[in-house]
């Protein structure tokens, strides 16, 4: 394992060191004392393991394709934003817009996620072990969100496609988000996926999908549109 000490270094220098170690063939890299710096571990395209020994700031693991990143602390806004593939695990709480626009891979938040988690997801899976904030799954287009705890207001607001599973209480549903029955196939998927990350599954889940009423404009739905916009 290679260690990088962040003390006195900018994010740019730290990211260059990560890249340098990967090019030298290193597959296991530990970033020490990150102290919530922004943009750590962005755009890593190799299947390596990165460990952040502490909290990270905004956009950690953004634009990655392949690595496994573990954050041994909390994270700021835009965790794993636009990730193509890989795994990003945060051991504590996540800030606003975790897993924003991801196209694939898995994001796991072991604590709670803040507002707009899973915003505009285009694939992949986001798992929140704790609770999830306001507008979770806002405008999501594809992929799966699993929240084991409770969700705040406007869940799944204006989602186009994709599915959201909630184990706890739902404060309220967003525009055009509807509850659908959980299938046996869903149950199996939930059990397998959560077991993969050693997360105990809640007793039951509710499933939320798009009502598809916002797909085409219809004058009859004007109130829904006004609300959504």
């Amino acid at each position: 394992m290679k260690d990088i000490d962040c003390t006195g270094k900018t994010s740019r220098v730290i990211n260059q060191e990560i890249r340098h170690h990967i090019q030298a063939g290193e597959t296991d890299i530990r970033v020490q004392h990150p102290q919530a710096r922004h943009n750590l571990g962005v755009a890593v395209l190799q299947q390596v393991s990165l460990t952040m020994s502490g909290s990270v700031g905004y956009y950690c693991g953004g634009l990655i394709d392949g690595p496994r990143i573990e954050v041994q602390g909390s994270c700021g806004w835009g965790l794993a934003e636009s990730m193509l593939n890989g795994t990003v695990i945060v051991n504590q709480n996540a800030g606003n817009s975790a897993a924003a626009s991801i196209r694939g891979g898995t994001v796991v938040v072991r604590g709670s996620a803040s507002s707009r988690a899973g915003i505009a997801m285009k694939g992949g899976t986001m798992i929140v072990q704790g609770n999830s904030g306001y507008m979770t799954g806002f405008m999501m287009q594809k992929g799966t969100i699993i929240v084991c705890g409770d969700t705040a207001e406007a869940l799944g607001d204006s989602m186009y496609e994709g599915r959201i599973f909630v184990g706890g209480r739902i404060a309220d549903l967003g525009n055009d988000a509807v509850i659908e029955e959980v299938t046996d196939q869903d149950q199996e998927f939930l059990a397998t996926t959560l077991a993969q990350y050693d997360i105990a599954a809640p007793a039951s889940f509710q499933k939320i999908v798009s009502g598809r009423r916002l797909w085409q404009f219809d004058k009859k739905d004007f109130d829904t549109w006004r609300e959504a916009l």
């Binding site: 004392h33 700031g57 709480n93 306001y134």
Partner: peptide, 22 residues
């Protein structure tokens, strides 16, 4: 505003959270 401020002034040994909306 950002966690960086808390970490650099007070260290690593406490959890942080974002306040909920409203």
């Amino acid at each position: 505003t950002e966690e960086q401020a808390l970490r650099s002034a007070l260290g690593d040994d406490f959890p942080v959270w974002e306040p909920g909306v409203n």
